[in-house]
Amino acid sequence: MSSAQCASEYCNQGWSEVLTHMSPYGYASFGVAFGLGLSVIGAAWGIWLTGSSLVGAAIKAPRIRSKNLISVIFCEATAIYGVIMAIILTNKIKAPETSGYYLEDGWDYNGYYYAGYGMFSAGLSVGLTNIASGISVGIAGSSCAIADAQDSSLFVKILIVEIFASALGIFGIIVGIIQSNACEFPTFAISNNYNN
């Protein structure tokens, strides 16, 4: 299927060109979307794992039903991490002050790309760790509900496991915040005397 290399300057010269031509604003916004979306997927995944076991186990042992909502809240926390990160990232996306079609001369392209890629990766860091964290909290929470129904002394013990699973998500958000800290979109050109 390989065809001859396109010689025209309007042709894409491979994927690297496609990717670098995507707007850093686009990257940053995708970072927000992935950070939030994947975190919510992780949280929802954990909640269904826990929730279905919780209602099932609560039929024979109704006393567990309120206590084990803690497991659901732990899963929910995963989504909250995503929301926090999404808010932080969204606040960092600033539109340029110039109104023209093209960016001004002397535009800080290094900072511009750095901000875009940095925020995209920060979003992915948070999103992917939160999927893992959400699922593992969910599995632990599901076992927690079932174990608590048989022996209430097990509840606190499994809860500690859940806390550790939940900590996985915190690792992601810490690194995500550090990653995005230095990302600052330039809003105006650094020096306007490039042509003078």
Binding site: W48, S53, G56, A57, A58, K60, S142, I146, A149, Q150
Partner: peptide, 16 residues
């Protein structure tokens, strides 16, 4: 748990 979580937990409740 998507399909069978409820039934399984119900069964495990019957362990008591």
């Amino acid at each position: 748990n998507i399909q069978h979580g409820f039934a399984e937990a119900l069964l495990r409740g019957m362990r008591s």
